[in-house]
Write a protein that binds this DNA or RNA. Structure first.
Length: 492
RNA sequence: CUGGAUGUGGCGCAGUUGGUAGCGCACCUGGUUAGGGACCAGGAGGUCGAAGGUUCAAGUCCUUUCAUCCAGACCA
């Protein structure tokens, strides 16, 4: 009996959850709101990490590591920042356990109360800026560009595998610059690094843009974002890069002496992407047969399934497969031969499809005789029988083609789900149907909030590289003058 | 925190008017199978989220509590 996924149309959330579980990516942990990332899921994350890390280093950033615990007092320094995170912080108050005098197991030792509570980092701006203070004295020390790969904790009320867990893995870059221009340039550069990664590796068309003041990172002067559209038409913020101005420098008193001998506050940026990217990957490309992984991120790019009756057949097929595998690996591809002999081919086909492996090769006695192999591509589910001769080159090209096809499909989907809208009535009707709407906005937080209250829609971004529309118009809600259109959507 | 629901072998579920647990999948053994999620036979595994109560007897009734899920508010 086929172990089918819930159809997408019925309940997208349920479908997504089933997908994550059944594709063996992750599961809910026994710890509230946390997630266990399983080896196959983690392999995807590792691949993402490796690619991103190389890109960061190419911009001059260096990896570092800062503490998990942040003294509570650090949070009181930057008012806006604490307001943004205060409601979702885990706090360490004690440092010791003891046996319960009443015999009820182990309890917290009341004697071991911390003088000052420690906050489990929800993000590291505060502790990093407290550290940067000691690293920066002269203009010659700048810029400083550090990135750290770590976990952070945000005590969310409702959690969702990969998209919003209490603890998640991410990368956070924190840079310090001598001038505002340089910092703004850095923030801009990093959002483009993210967009490039999303588009070329995740096969995810994203919109680059500025966040509206309401949606900005707590403590930022400007937040740049990449916004992706999922298959249900909802928006997912996939990465952000912030221009923090001098807010943190002033809060933590980080100054340098410029080349004229004057004391100046430094300018800051921070940028990050998280395991949420995996959620984006899953929701953007998967179908009812399971995951569809872009070859650039698939832990296994090619799987080979032998079909046989007798041991001699199996030996002969496996030998052929090993030859192909070697050649493919020499070309830089990851290959797996599924030689498990307790499972039938049909079962293996279904299982590897569920896991999203881009290309599957099947070879049986018939192929052995005719010198052929069956090539199946995950994205279109097409199957062709081909001559073995030159098969490696064909697969090499096929992987590129799959990568492109997945992107094109997601791109076409988004293009048909974005439209201009100039009537409030129309807006209310269409926004819930899984679309991004390009609308005029008067630039005020009040209007944005009013629209959100009434429709749940938020300004996903003020686009800068696609859907840019800087024409005069009237705000869709208030009717006040507007200088251009922004992207509205319902977000995850 | 508000509203709704659910907690029974690893997973998904059933359990009638209370009479101390059953099914499917998965698992183990043996055999037959193998080009789209195999079949037969045998086998192992739970004391029903937790605590308390009613009763001769509780998965089933009552009270309390905890946890999870869904929808809100919040968020990457």
């Amino acid at each position: 009996m086929a172990d089918q996924l819930t159809k997408r149309s019925e309940n997208y959330s349920q479908w997504y959850n089933d997908l994550v579980l059944k594709a063996d990516l992750a599961e809910q942990s026994a710890v509230r709101g946390c997630m266990v990332i399983k080896p196959y899921g983690y392999a995807i994350w590792e691949k993402m990490q490796r690619i991103l890390d190389d890109k960061f280093k190419a911009t001059g950033a260096k990896n570092a590591y800062f503490p998990l615990f942040i003294p509570k007092s650090f949070f009181s320094r930057e008012a806006e920042h604490v307001a943004g995170f205060a409601k979702e912080c885990a706090v360490v108050t004690h440092h010791r356990l003891m046996n319960d005098p009443n015999g009820n197991g182990v309890v917290v030792d009341p004697e071991a109360k911390l003088e000052e509570e420690l906050i489990v980092r929800p993000t590291s701006e505060t502790i990093i800026w407290n550290t940067y203070k000691n690293w920066i004295t002269s203009w010659r020390d700048l810029p400083i560009m550090c990135n750290q790969w770590c976990n952070v904790v945000r005590w969310e009320m409702r959690t969702r595998l990969f998209l919003r867990t209490a603890e998640f893995l991410w990368q956070e870059g924190h840079t310090a610059h001598a001038t505002a221009e340089e910092a703004q340039e850095e923030a801009k550069r990093m959002v483009h690094v993210y967009a490039d990664f999303a588009r070329n590796y995740m096969a995810l068309p994203v919109i680059i843009g500025h966040k509206s003041p309401n949606e900005r990172f707590a403590g930022a002067l400007d937040t740049l974002t990449i916004e992706a559209m999922m298959q249900d038409g909802k928006a997912l913020q996939a990465g952000t890069s912030h221009f923090l101005g001098q807010n943190f420098a002033k809060s933590f008193d980080v100054t340098y002496t410029d080349n004229e001998g004057k004391q100046q506050y430094v300018w800051a940026t921070s940028w990050g992407v998280s395991t949420r990217l995996m959620g984006a990957l899953i929701m953007a490309h998967s179908d009812d047969n399971g995951l569809v992984l872009p070859p650039a991120l698939a832990p296994i790019q090619i799987v080979m399934v032998p079909i046989y009756r007798k041991p001699e057949e199996m030996a002969a097929i496996l030998e052929k497969m090993e030859q192909i595998k070697k050649k493919l690996e020499a070309m830089g591809h990851s290959v797996e031969i599924d030689s498990r002999d307790n499972l039938r081919p049909g079962f293996k086909f279904a299982e590897w499809e569920l896991k999203g492996v881009p290309v599957r090769l099947a070879m049986g006695p018939r192929d052995l005789e005719s010198g052929t192999v069956e090539v199946h591509r995950r994205d279109t589910l097409e199957k062709v029988t081909m001559q073995l001769d030159g098969i490696e080159e064909h697969i090499h090209g096929l992987l590129d083609d799959i990568q492109k096809t997945i992107y094109d499909k997601a791109f076409a989907f988004r293009q048909t789900h974005v439209e201009k809208c100039d009537s409030w009535e129309e807006f209310k009707e269409k926004i819930g149907t899984g679309k991004f709407l390009l609308c005029h906005w008067d630039g005020t937080a009040e209007t944005e909030q009013a629209i959100k209250d009434e429709t749940k829609a938020t300004i996903r971004c003020i686009p800068v590289d696609s859907f840019v529309c800087e024409e005069e118009g009237k705000d869709i809600f208030s009717g006040k003058p507007s200088k251009g259109r922004v992207v509205f959507g319902i977000a995850y």
